[in-house]
Amino acid sequence: MRQESGMTLIVKRITRITVSLIFLFGVYIMLHGHLTPGGGFAGGVIIALSFIHLVLAFGKKAALKRISETTISAFESIGGVFFWSIALGGLLFSGVYFLNFLPKGEAFSLFSAGTIVFCNIAIFLKVGAGLFAIFVALAFLRMPDEKEEGGKAA
């Protein structure tokens, strides 16, 4: 059996089960932000934590083979541009910057509250991708002491 990067087999098996659940929980928190506690900020941080979980368990190379840094920065830019375009849409359709121009829908249902859901999605992409990019940048920076010890500390 070849030497693999990352933690032991037990951690990897458990990670495979839990990461998808954490991801789902983050999306749930984000999508129900206008009805229950939560929203884009909390959901984005939870998503970033799920990817960080993946990086810590499987090692940097194996995890980043699937999600490259270009993808991360693309997601963050998409989030920023999406949020700004919602603000511009208010200006375009009703003449006021940041106006809630979509129909409000029926209260207390999932598809209500006009632009707030889309704003939540934009904030979610931005916060999640941004914090994960920060973590990846800090994790790739290796302390000089660790190199001599063989990179024991992740």
């Binding site: 932000g33 206008h34 809630n100 509250a113 707030i116 704003c119």
Partner: peptide, 13 residues
């Protein structure tokens, strides 16, 4: 705004 969560309505609308 149609949002039940008032904090969410304040920060995003």
């Amino acid at each position: 705004t149609g949002a039940a969560n008032i904090v969410s309505a304040v920060i995003l609308d």
